[in-house]
Computed example of a mutant assay.
Amino acid sequence: MNIKTILKWLFITPVVGLGILLLMVLPLLVLIKGTAMSYYAEMSYLLSLFIGGFAAFIVLLTYMIAIDRVAGRQIFFSIWVKLSVAALCVMSFVLYSMYVLNDENVKNRRIASQYTQTHPVLRLGLQSWSLFDRSLVITDIARSHSFYRRHRMRTYYRSLHFPQKHLDGKVYALDIRTKGRGKFRNWITQVVFRMMGFGTLRHTGTADHLHIELRLRKSDKQKIAFATRKIRNRNRANRKKRQNLLAEKRRVRQQLLRKLRTVKSQNERRLSEIEREKQNQGLEKSIVQKPVSQDSGMRNSATQKLDQQGENSSGVASIKTEGMRNTNSMTKSQTSNQSQSDSSKKITSNNVTSKADSKKEESELENDDADDAQ
């Protein structure tokens, strides 16, 4: 063999190998790239999956027709067999990538249960690459606010790891392990996902990992902005309602307190008045009861004495009459003395007033004489 033939085969064999590999991978690339491009063209993910699957179906159909032409005979029999085989291959792979995930490619079962929450386009690309990279491990898919608190990290509210409730409730991002895989393999993985149309980022949040995300479209960004604006307005309205309710509660509470204070003061006044009335009534009763009790005691003692002195009743009666006469005479003399003293007081007061009047007249006359002299 010549050197030229050896060099030719050395050049042809890798090219042929790359061509065969490209032919094998081309249906997957067409499926994923067509789905991603149609999705970024503002189509729904179901329609984008249909378009990508239809493109892969056409590629497989052309492969089978080319194989029949090269072989010179119909290996796949009729055209209907070719159509059915191509359709089954595409549909089976799409369904497999949507609902099946190997345990080797997941960190734990919790993340495996979150696999169906990821976006279908992202699932399709992940399963396509997992056919060639068996050491691929998903470390994180869906997150919550407790995740950031548990790891003592600041919550990033725009993270695509959160379920996008304003769009379709799906998770638009996942993390792949980079530890123990080698730099070249991690670089190839990042390049492949970029070629598929996904966004990639190598960073260290909780640990070193490769972040892969399905980028948001313009319509999705507008929906999220509109939803956030709506939520802010609703929160403001709710805040105003709460403030108004609190102000009204305070006003009602103040009114109730004022009413309670007035009622309390009125009750205190009434109680004080009732206590005063009770005290006055008690004093009156005590004042009335004391002389009555004294009179009754004196009467009882007098009756006892009279009973004991029954024999000398006539003498006692005469003594009583004499005593009554003496008391009457004494009262008459006292009244006469009082009248005399009153008359003497009146006379002295009249004398004093007459003297004062005479003094005033004399002083007035003296003043008049002084005025005439001047």
Rank of each mutant, 00 (worst) to 15 (best):
A302T: 12
M195P: 02
Q255V: 00
L126I: 14
L271S: 13
R194Q: 12
N2Q: 04
F162N: 03
R177K: 14
L28F: 03
D133M: 11
A36D: 03
D220A: 08
V70Q: 05
V316A: 06
A370S: 04
P14T: 08
K332R: 08
M91S: 15
I67K: 11
S344Y: 02
L31K: 05
S130F: 03
A373M: 08
L174K: 02
K355I: 12
Y40N: 07
T353Q: 11
R110D: 15
F57E: 14
A55E: 13
L131E: 15
S78W: 05
L31H: 08
R239I: 04
K221R: 15
S293V: 00
T189F: 01
D372A: 13
V121M: 08
D307I: 07
Q289K: 09
K107S: 13
R110W: 01
Q279I: 10
G52W: 06
S313Q: 06
T303I: 13
G323V: 01
T189L: 13
T35W: 00
E42P: 02
K8G: 13
T206I: 11
V292A: 14
K345W: 03
I287D: 08
S293E: 14
Y148E: 15
L124Y: 02
D369G: 00
L257R: 15
L7Y: 01
V94C: 01
I79G: 07
T321I: 14
M324E: 14
I212M: 10
N350V: 00
T206L: 09
R181M: 09
